[in-house]
Design a protein around this nucleic acid. Sequence first.
DNA 1: ATAAGGAATTATCAAATGATAAGAAATGTC
DNA 2: GACATTTCTTATCATTTGATAATTCCTTAT
Lengths: 187, 187
Amino acid sequence: MNLDNIIDNIYPLPDRSKALLKERIYEIAYPKATILFRANRIASKVYFIKKGIVRAYANQNEEEITFWFGKEGDAVISMKNYVEDQRGYETIELLEPCELYEIQTEDLRALYKNDIEVANWGRKFAEQELVKIEERFISRQCKVAVERYKELMNNDPDLLKRVQLVHIASYLGITPVSLSRIRAEFK
Amino acid sequence: MNLDNIIDNIYPLPDRSKALLKERIYEIAYPKATILFRANRIASKVYFIKKGIVRAYANQNEEEITFWFGKEGDAVISMKNYVEDQRGYETIELLEPCELYEIQTEDLRALYKNDIEVANWGRKFAEQELVKIEERFISRQCKVAVERYKELMNNDPDLLKRVQLVHIASYLGITPVSLSRIRAEFK
DNA sequence: ATAAGGAATTATCAAATGATAAGAAATGTC
DNA sequence: GACATTTCTTATCATTTGATAATTCCTTAT
């Protein structure tokens, strides 16, 4: 996923503002299983995924609960870090070797302060992430695991192929055994 | 909850920008049971709660699933509306007679375009809402109903007193009967 | 090609939750 | 204050889900 597309999909920037932003963004590649963010640590970077797939999980009672998958075009970010300079609860792990776009949070903040276009880009960025998580939240709250599995099958069949069943099960809030039972019904 | 506090808690604005914003905000009161937003409708307003308590619910299989409570100081907003001009999935109902601060989405957007301070205020607003919903999401994903009930007891005991058990149960994702059983254990 | 290790499925049983209904408590109304 | 209505609790039973373990399937390395 191309950097210009990622930026423009959030909010189309005039050339000058876009140049300011792109000046601060670097490309970087990491191998599978790299940890991008670690729970309870301060991090100061924001990533966008050019290529690859990642998962975010939280530790709860000795268990890893997966609550998000990111793939091409998605932003990888520890919100508590980014927004409040506080320690995040999530660990983010690469499930495949990944190519990423990286920017320092402080660079982003400096741009927000000085360029109204970038400030509005940052606003749209937060707003879009907000809508995304709200949709996941509603789905989590209103639908049972089977329904959410079907939803995933429709919206992102690719993901089901690229990600291990344990993680999908955790994401759906059920055990891998339960997910297997659900799958067995659709044959 | 005072309007100045609400605004400043999001992001302290210089006087001039703050005046621009406040110029567009009106106070209004509604009786209990008023519907502020209706699912699948376009709305074009944003509210902040001065006094009172509200709930947001989505309709799922003939059932109302409560997924949010708002009280003094909280923003009442249909995100899909506000962000994307799309129909929201939520209905928002006043559980008490409420006093509200109201602003038109289009007025807010005009300010974002023209004032970098207000643009950054809007960014912080979205970011803070994002962190709030992320916390609820993680709690929903990682904790079972009992734990989340305890969490609610600690963080917002007031809410438990002001809101009916059916709604709390729905919010926790269990039946009222189940919630009663949970309550009975803490006596 | 085959062996070894990891991942997914299936089976069995125990535990937790839901549905339904009936009773107790609280709230509102006249 | 007493009745009616709503809300909450308790009880019983059926269903669903989880835990554990055994088996099958798939991937990878040599």
